Simulated assay, not measured.
Amino acid sequence: MNSIAQSIIDGHGGLAQWRKFTKVQADLVQGGALWALKGQSGVLDRTTVTVATDRQWASHAPFGTLAVKSEFAGDRISLIDLAGKVTQSLEKPRGSFDGHTLETSWDALQLAFFAGCAMWTYLNTPFVLAWDGVECQEAGEWTEQGETWRKILVRYPASLEVFSKAQAIYVGPDNLVRRLDYDVEIAGNTPGAHYVSDYTTVSGIRIPTRRRIYPRLPDGHSVAQPLVVSIDLSAIALT
């Protein structure tokens, strides 16, 4: 882990504190235009999300009316019923998005993959910067919301399943993340600007409770409409 990652991780509570835990769980409320666009309106409006901190694993429970829960494990996605039986599953689910654009509809397993992959990445940020093979470097300054932020370019290795291998993190003067940028590869490389705010401290770790994702222009600025995804977290627990 280089000094850039170290400074950001320290601002969020430090790696030693983070590694005391193996899971993050939160009540999740979601909105935004994406879900209807993908033909999955309402499925994950209100649920509980759990992610592992020591491996790639995430679950949404319930998964709407379709399953008791989903399980994302990087190269496999599953839907599970009340008896614990796998009712649907897909190996190497990323390949199922080949040729997709932003307007392409998703089936239930594709929704589960995207949601699991996204929330694993979000809730493990910035501590994922300490994972083997994750690279980051300074990319200058960015002024927004009356602050000057550091822009950090991040490259994820092939061993991690993320929906965009190249991303950017913006951190404020307090080293807390303010924004994430990525081009969603599984949706036609659609560019997004993802803002995080309303931090709370849980077991010594700083975690944002509010996330808002908007379209991103070629010059790096975002536009206020449409709101692509909204995420609000509460009852956050680290175990």
Rank of each mutant, 00 (worst) to 15 (best):
W120R: 04
L217I: 02
S230W: 01
T48W: 00
L44I: 06
A224S: 08
P226N: 08
S234A: 11
G204R: 07
A139D: 12
L82C: 06
M119A: 07
S96H: 02
P173M: 05
C117Y: 05
L153A: 11
L180W: 09
T200M: 00
Y195P: 02
V171P: 05
K85Q: 15
P191I: 13
W131E: 15
G74C: 01
K165I: 00
V24I: 15
P226Y: 06
I205S: 04
I236V: 13
T104V: 02
L129F: 13
E161G: 00
T47Q: 02
V223F: 04
D132L: 13
T101R: 08
L123P: 03
V228F: 07
G188R: 01
A235G: 15
T48I: 12
D27N: 13
A58F: 06
T48E: 02
P62W: 03
E71S: 14
A33Y: 13
G140Y: 03
R178M: 04
T22Q: 11
I8R: 04
L28A: 09
Q137P: 06
E147L: 14
Q40C: 08
W18S: 11
Q17R: 14
Q137R: 15
P173G: 10
L37Y: 03
K69D: 00
S197D: 14
D232Y: 08
W57L: 02
S234P: 08
T104L: 00
S164H: 05
G116K: 11
V177F: 02
T239V: 11
W149C: 09
A118P: 05
H100Q: 04
I80G: 12
P157T: 00
H194V: 01
G31W: 00
F97L: 02
F72G: 04
F113W: 12
L238I: 10
L109R: 12
A61N: 08
F21K: 11
E135N: 12
P191T: 15
S105D: 07
P218D: 06
D181F: 02
V134R: 10
T148Q: 11
P215W: 10
L233G: 03
I9K: 05
D10K: 08
V229N: 05
R178H: 13
D98H: 10
A158W: 00
R46A: 11
A36M: 07
S203R: 10
S41N: 11
T125F: 09
F21S: 06
S222M: 06
A5S: 12
P173V: 07
S41A: 15
L153R: 13
F72S: 03
L123S: 01
S203M: 04
F97Y: 12
G133A: 09
L15Y: 09
G39I: 10
A26W: 07
T50I: 03
R155L: 05
H194R: 02
W131N: 15
V86C: 04
E141D: 11
L233C: 10
A67F: 00
I236S: 05
V43Q: 01
L227I: 13
R155K: 14
S105M: 01
S159V: 09
A193R: 03
D27E: 12
T87L: 08
W142D: 01
I213A: 02
T53S: 07
